[in-house]
Design a protein around this nucleic acid. Structure first.
Length: 852
DNA sequence: GTATTGTCAGTGTG
DNA sequence: CCACACTGACAATA
């Protein structure tokens, strides 16, 4: 759909040309996924829906096309929401880098034995370069490995540590059982008897008094009622509650407005979902599909409904509103859009940078796997060490109470330490973060690595188990948990009633080559409602804290996806008609329109006239990781461009995957995008941009999304198709996704990169109008979450690489996938040669307002 | 220096 | 084969 220069007329809106059929034969993939596996999923779909959609998939006479150019002024995404936060401007980046003040030598910092010349970084690009230098410095500099980076472990008293303190999320049954064991009335108010002790001038001894004698929150409830009021005043100017962004300074009760709540509070909460990963895996052995690391396979069932739509997250964010009659603390005045956007950009950029460093380090570790070691190093530690010396953390300073600027509900993180980087959770290890507030210590955030109490009608309640007690420590007997540190802070938060952030740590399906299988999701703000002491699994007393989600926040996408069993607005079960490994359904909750039909091909079609030069494959038999021997790896500059979990390490001008003439097996790590889609995608009707694409799964940064498939056209042919050229993609024009990577995209000139092989404007265009795949539905954004990557695997003609889309960041479920179309403003012409203009409605702060 | 903390990656078990 | 449990190493903080 993208064309630039003077070639063609371009439409931003996906209008579907008539005359498309579904003729292409299914493509057999030698790969892991069989059609049976797909039908396995469909078996689980309600019969009524199946039958219904069978008719609906390709309606015979029911084509309905929107007129072209039907773009409303309504913005699809609210500013700085969802995937639309733009990259930082130069000024913003410069502003936030700490290196003006620090003069840090990365290498000496991490390895004092091998000092290199000093480096100063002012942006992410330089950080990446520094990482490259460390991993494989150019010239005569000594070569350092990731191992060298690691500071030598100083004789750590080994065997001293290891302890497990925090468990959480008991079921409601556990709670009832535990009630019998509760200590009663053995409680002494931690704050003494005088309400005045909540005053900021209260005695210092109170925390100590608070210590060990408290086992139940209810017993001193009355006593503290008055204190609450006063304590709120102490803290009030620090609270930021998202629901009040639009009604800052509001005190007391807030009226609930269902229209503003994004519908979230109207949703039924029922434990009626079926999660294949949990419940069905044993029966259904074919869960290999849709697996990559983060994935859960979701099966819909007919009882529940799904109210979400494409702008779910974004709408909700924009329209956060308080609900019901919860008394909110007063909150800070809204900081304004620009600040919020800047914060959001900082968070996104920091995470991208960190994740890129991680992938580079992981690549390095993996390349050594066979040669030297059998085990990986902790790339997260290495990465954060590098990151910290070059960039400031976001939201530095004391732990924030309440909303963290730039972090939105639903944001996902791959490593624990990322929470630290963005200021969401300060401790590097502990699950409870707290901050001193005058004389008291209140909790600011917790990480719940267990699961929610997903009991009927109440999925917003979390029972969190406290920390401490020597539970898993070797050589020590478990003890009763004490009301100190995190436990004390949570108890105080209960009394003081300050919001506590909850981060939900989730272990995802694991597999050998899937890499990490854990992720953290920011769930929003909670109140600590009560706590109690009861026997834990080891028999000793533990604290349990009841946290209740503050209403009015956006619902968390993964919860929505799991809860709902039927996709509301489901109009097509599989737009690929079985040609993709994983079915792609179509959702329309806005009107009656169905996705238009077209010839679905999962991959690029090369016409006869296109004489592709035959690809000369490598002759690796035992995999292609030994770089010196593999011709494909050499073409990539000496490294496999992918991690073993399938994530692309960095964007490159051109990636050479192993192909059909290579001797390596299909499981070769240098084969990623050729295997096709790995996630459950769905096409959905957006508010104002026509159809869009989103995923039901969490997508880790660097993951392959899909190819942009279609017919290959030569320049002349492309010109003739100006009638419906909204699906043109100009090959060679996708190299400058500068808005996305900003720093990263321009740093491909290191020794490892095959930078000299820049793909020029090849004179070829992909037309997905009549023939195409999922990629044709993906919309443009000025601050996208995907980027296009040139890939070669089945031929050597660099003029016509495959256009492969990859995730630029972690993408939560249901967030729209977008990439930058790379139009050049005033360079698009219509059939008369006049300059065409099209407005962009992506809504990001980077948005120029013009698509072309 | 020490105690505390929980993750991560690998290994073992059912 | 898969899910889960367990373990050693680890780094940061109070």
């Amino acid at each position: 759909m993208v064309t630039s220069g003077s070639r063609g007329v371009v439409y931003a809106i996906r209008d579907f040309p008539p005359g498309c059929g579904r003729l292409a034969a299914p493509i057999n993939r030698s790969g892991e996924h069989s059609v049976n596996e797909i039908s396995g999923l469909q078996k689980n779909l309600p019969k009524a829906n199946v039958a219904n959609s069978e008719k609906e998939i390709f309606p015979k006479n029911a084509r309905k096309y929107y007129p072209q150019g039907r773009v409303s002024v309504i913005r699809d995404f609210p500013p700085f929401c969802g995937g639309n936060a733009p990259p930082l401007s130069k000024e913003e980046r410069t502003e936030r880098t700490s290196l003006k003040n620090k003069d840090i030598n990365l290498v000496t910092l991490v390895s004092e034995e091998n000092p290199l010349e000093k480096t100063k970084c002012t942006d992410g690009k330089q950080v990446i370069e520094a990482v490259r230098d460390v991993i494989a410095p150019e010239g005569s500099a000594p070569i350092l490995s990731a191992e060298d980076i690691r500071s030598k472990p100083d004789e750590h008293a080994s065997g001293k540590t290891k302890k497990q303190g925090a468990y959480e999320a008991s079921s409601r049954n556990d709670m009832k059982e535990g009630m019998h064991y509760m200590f009663e009335n053995s409680i002494k108010s931690p704050f003494g008897s005088s309400p005045n002790e909540f005053d900021s001038k209260s005695k210092k001894a109170e925390d100590k008094d608070f210590q060990t004698n408290l086992s139940d929150s209810s017993a001193f409830e009355n006593e503290l009622l008055e204190n609450d009021r006063e304590s709120q005043e102490v803290l009030s100017d620090r609270w930021i509650v998202p629901g009040l962004m639009a009604s800052a300074q509001l005190h007391g009760k807030v009226t609930f407005n269902p229209d503003l709540a994004g519908g979230s509070s109207k949703r039924k909460r029922k434990k009626s979902f079926t999660l294949l990963q949990r419940d069905n895996t044993r029966k259904n052995s074919s869960t290999k599909w849709a697996h990559q690391g983060f994935n859960q396979v979701v099966v819909w069932d007919k009882k529940d409904t799904f109210h979400g739509d494409g702008q779910y997250t974004n709408d909700s964010f924009a329209q956060r509103s308080c609900s019901n009659d919860v008394s909110f603390p007063p909150c800070q005045t809204s900081t304004g859009h620009n600040d919020a956007m800047t914060s959001r950009n900082k968070v996104r950029e920091a995470l991208r940078l960190f994740q890129a460093i991680c992938r580079m380090l992981l690549q390095e570790e993996e390349s050594k796997l066979k040669e030297e070691r059998k085990t990986f190093r902790r790339v997260d530690y290495l990465a954060v060490k590098i990151f910290k010396q070059k960039m400031e953390f976001v939201n530095p300073g004391k732990s924030i109470i309440g909303l963290v600027p730039g972090v939105e509900v639903g944001d996902e993180f791959q490593y624990f330490v990322e929470l630290n980087i963005v200021g969401l959770h300060r401790p590097s290890q502990a699950g409870i973060d707290y901050v001193k507030q005058g004389e008291r210590t209140v909790a600011t955030s917790i990480i719940a690595s267990g699961s929610y109490e997903d009991d009927l009608d109440n999925s917003d309640v979390l029972w969190y188990m406290g920390q401490g007690g020597n539970v898993m420590q070797k050589g020590k007997d478990p003890e009763d948990q004490k009301l100190e540190r995190g436990n004390l802070a949570l108890a105080t938060s209960k009394v003081v009633k300050n919001p506590v952030r909850v981060i939900h740590g989730e272990t995802r399906s694991s597999g050998l080559s899937e890499g990490r299988c854990k992720a953290y999701v920011y769930d929003g703000l909670y109140w600590v409602e009560e706590f109690k002491q009861e026997p834990g699994p080891h028999g000793k007393l533990v604290y349990k804290f009841k946290l209740v989600r503050i209403p009015g926040q956006p619902e968390i996408a993964w919860k929505v996806v799991r809860k709902s069993k039927v996709r509301e607005g489901l109009c097509v079960h599989d737009i690929s008609n079985g040609k993709e490994i994983i079915p792609i359904c179509a959702i329309n909750t806005r009107d009656a329109e169905k996705p238009p039909t077209f010839v679905y091909v999962p991959r690029m079609i090369y016409p006869d006239w296109c004489h592709r030069t035959p690809s000369k494959g490598c002759s690796c038999i035992n995999g292609c990781s030994q770089s010196a021997k593999c011709s494909c790896v050499m073409k990539n500059g000496g490294d496999i461009p992918y991690n073993h979990n399938g994530a692309i390490v960095l964007p490159k001008p051109l990636v050479y995957e192993c192909g059909p003439t290579c001797k390596c097996p299909p499981s070769c790590y240098n084969r990623v995008s050729q295997h096709g889609i790995r996630f459950q995608f769905e096409v959905f009707k957006t508010k104002s941009k026509g159809w869009g694409v989103r995923s039901l799964n969490s997508i880790p940064s660097g993951s392959f999304i899909c190819e942009y498939a279609g017919e290959i056209l030569e320049d002349g042919e492309a010109e003739k198709r100006t009638g419906h050229d909204e699906y043109l993609f100009d090959i060679g024009n996708n190299n400058s996704d500068s808005s996305l990577w900003d720093d990263l995209s321009t740093i491909m000139h290191d020794a490892h990169s095959s930078f000299h092989q820049v793909v020029p404007d090849s004179g070829f265009t992909i037309d997905a109008a009549r023939v195409g795949n999922l990629g044709r539905f993906i919309n443009h954004s000025c601050s996208p979450n995907l980027y296009a990557q040139n890939v070669l695997y089945d031929h050597d003609d660099e003029r016509i690489p495959h256009i492969m889309l990859f995730a630029a960041e972690n993408i939560p479920p249901l967030q729209e996938l977008t990439y930058h179309y790379n139009y050049m403003v005033d360079q698009v012409h219509d059939e008369n040669g006049d300059v065409k203009k099209k407005s962009c409605y992506c809504g990001s702060s980077k948005c120029t307002g013009r698509l072309y």
